[in-house]
Design a protein around this nucleic acid. Sequence first.
DNA 1: CTCCCGATAT
DNA 2: ATATCAGGAG
Length: 210
Amino acid sequence: MDTKKQMQTIIRRLKKEYPKSKTELFYGTPFQLLTATILSAQTTDVLVNRVTEPIFKKYKTANDFLKLTPEELEKMIKSINYYKTKAKNILSCAAIIKERFSTEVPKTMQDLITLPGVARKTANIVLSEAYGINEGIAVDTHVKRLAARLGISNNTDPVKIEQDLMKITKKENWQLVSNLLIYHGRRVCDAKKPRHSDCVLADICPSADI
DNA sequence: CTCCCGATAT
DNA sequence: ATATCAGGAG
């Protein structure tokens, strides 16, 4: 079966299911998106938004966040897991962005992944959402799980999964496919109990033995 | 490979 | 009690 056609079908059907799919992370500025995405590692977006909403009212740019001490930021994001590491990374990012990138969140993959706590997944989110740049496909836990279940990629390395997805997806759909798979992963194809009977992809999915 | 290390659903 | 949640670094 043609995997490119399979991907086209997946995108068409999921687009119909979730016409308004976009990031569910709350943010205003590029640095806020970077911050929210760093916080979102192994954490639900609902919890991230709960924590960032009051913070983002006061702190919008890298320079704003540099007014905070690590201890102050830790206290504000205490309910997020890995809060110490994340607080340190966010402030390190702010400092580096101020010093090396004239206070602006970088617009290239190469520059973004030099930031602490930022790898391809986070960089892809920032590039596509904040700047509209399709450098790659953001592969998170949902994309990884759905790619495996749909028989698209058996790799465990997120970078290889991203390459497998890019090969069979039109570049213009790179950010869309990531958002669609995440939406579907959260609502129907969840990790514990995938709801095959409610899945619009069931007939083309190797994992749905209905 | 381990560490980071909280909230929530089941 | 345990698995999982928009991962990344050492």
